[in-house]
Amino acid sequence: MMRILVVVFALLTAFAAVAQEQHDHDHDDHVSELAGFRAVHAWARATGSNSALIFMELENGSAAPVTISGGESTMAASARLVGFALKNGREVWQDIPGVPIKPGHALHLEPHGLALLLGGLSTQLKEGDELKARLHTSLGDLDLHVEIEGANATHHSHAGHSH
């Protein structure tokens, strides 16, 4: 009887561990981290044009200020850090050389705010796909797993979850 209970307990623990691992794996898709500096919920809209904006939430959990300055992607010719502005009633994206983030602070790259602008995309972005990109930071490059959302999305489909 005792043996059976032990086996059942062991099995349950194993299942739980596997399940936990599975969940952690899911998290890897939404979170990337570099020495405490994290990028969460990177996403972009599905598009057929040759440019796209990548949005994300950045959290500086390290002990020093971190500056982000741009990025790169194997699927795009360029990846610039840009900020939204309204000029003469038209939406424009102006180049931002770099934004420092203090320790313990967060920075949101979001629609009508900051974004990473991909230029010269080599493929169409389809909803549900994932795009690989890297964010240039003063700590080094941070890998991004960019979730492709609908063409009219305004946020990441997991936004609001805490990781």
């Binding site: 931002i96 934004v99 420092p100």
Partner: peptide, 13 residues
């Protein structure tokens, strides 16, 4: 600073 507006927006949200 141009960038600071964006940072302040994150900061005060």
């Amino acid at each position: 600073a141009l960038w600071a507006n964006y940072a302040l927006r994150s900061e005060f949200t």
